[in-house]
Structures are given as structure tokens and as C-alpha cells.
Amino acid sequence: MTLLHLENLTKRFGGLIAVNDVSFDVPEGAIVGLIGPNGAGKTTVFNLITGNYRADSGKIVFDGRPINNLPTHKIVSLGIARTFQTIRLFQKLTALENVLSGCHCRMKSGSIAAMFQPPWQRAEEQKALDKALSELRFVKLAEQAMNLAENLSYGNQRLLEVARALATEPRLIILDEPAGGMNDQETARLIDTIRQIQARGVTVLLIEHDMSLVMKACEQIVVLENGGKIAEGTPSEIKANRRVIEAYLGTDEE
């Protein structure tokens, strides 16, 4: 079953066509990789899906519902969570509070309940705390709960972003270069984590430059070049695809 469906998606920035007529499907429960040379438009596609940008034309359908014109927070509450290419944690807040931000959209209490703290508000807070802690445990950062995000190592900050995204209880998680800046050991751990995310029933869509990670973790790969889709298929099909090899040859591959 298709969870996310992109249809003829186009986005222009002035004269530059960042995303050109891109269509692909993300089946429910899969791990799908989005790859391509630098500047191919991968992150722009992510920003379109999450509502950070508005598409100039085309359709984005999530679970049978068009989400083109919804604001980001609505899209999150429908079940799409993301991490960022450049880490965007709340640096001056603790790791726990960073994850609690993800719990936010599954909570209800507002400012007045906060001031008077009725029992249901306290229960909700406690539930959120438990949830946040369990997500921290999931990415193995529970001991860091009380540390400020800025004091975590780079790799751990990436994992903390994953935990924050998972705390929104997503059905689809979008990871933008999750292994960026990680060493081999951390990357191996990340692949494990991604598989565990899938095992929880969450669909994964990721951008990654680390080809070994993509080939190991993804079941299906979509390749973009210059804003357009040039190939789509399983890792072995992509490896053998002439156009993909051409796109990567001569470019400044990492």
C-alpha cells in the first residue's frame, strides 16, 4: 500500500528549477532512499513534503489525503516527522526537552491548564515524559537526558534529532543525511536504528550520501539529478543503471 505519493512535483526558485516533475511512491513499511549528486534537489523534495516550501505544481498525497497546502505542524500531526540536514536541535535545552518537543503535537493542555495544573494535565505531562524517555532509550541516549543538546557529540546530536522526530509518533519519518558527520561505528549503529524504526512499523524515507548505508539499508532507491528523477529501483538495479553511474561519474563524490 502506498503511504506517500508524489505526483509531478515541481518547485522553482526564480529561474532555477530545483525540482522538476518528480513523481514517486513510498510504500508503507518500506525504507526508501533518495540519492543524487549535490544540488540534485533532494532536500527541496523533503522541504516540499514537510510543508517548509510550497510546490509550484504537482501533488503530495499522504495516506490518501492531499497535504500540499497544509502548514508544517499539521503535516507533523498527520504523521510525517523529519530530521534536518544541518542539525537543528534546541541547543540551549536539555536532550529530554528536545524530545519532549516531539511529544507536543500529541498533547492537549494549553496555557490555562498550565497555570492551574489540573490532574489530567499532570497525567499528560507524565505520559509525555515517559514517552520522551523511552525514545531517548531507543536511540541509546537515556543517560544524556539532562545534558544540554549543544554538549552532545555530533553523532549523538543526529540521533537526538531522530528521537525527537520519533516522539511525534510518525507513520513516516524523513531523515535528511542522518549519517552526515558520523564515523563508521556510528554509521553502523545508525543502520541498526533505522532497521529498528522500520520494525516499529514506521516507514522511512532518507537522503544519504554514504552509499554503503543506502545500499545496505534501503529497499528501494530513487535517484535525482538536476531536479529530475533519473532512476528508481532496488539497490542492485540502481547499481547497474547506466544513467546513475553517469550522473555520479566526474562529480565530486564524497
Binding site: 502548514p71 516527522a81 523529519r82 540551549k92 526537552e97 518537543s101 507536543h104 498533547m107 495544573q117
Partner: peptide
Amino acid sequence: SRFGRALNYIREDDVAAAGSG
């Protein structure tokens, strides 16, 4: 509270705050 934290998230990074729902 949830409310107080939300304000802090917005102060720290409002794009990330929106991205967290």
C-alpha cells in the same frame, strides 16, 4: 508546562519547532 516549553522551542529555532509539530 507544555506551553512554556513550546515558547522556548520557538525562541531557540522556530523552523525546528514547526518541524516538531
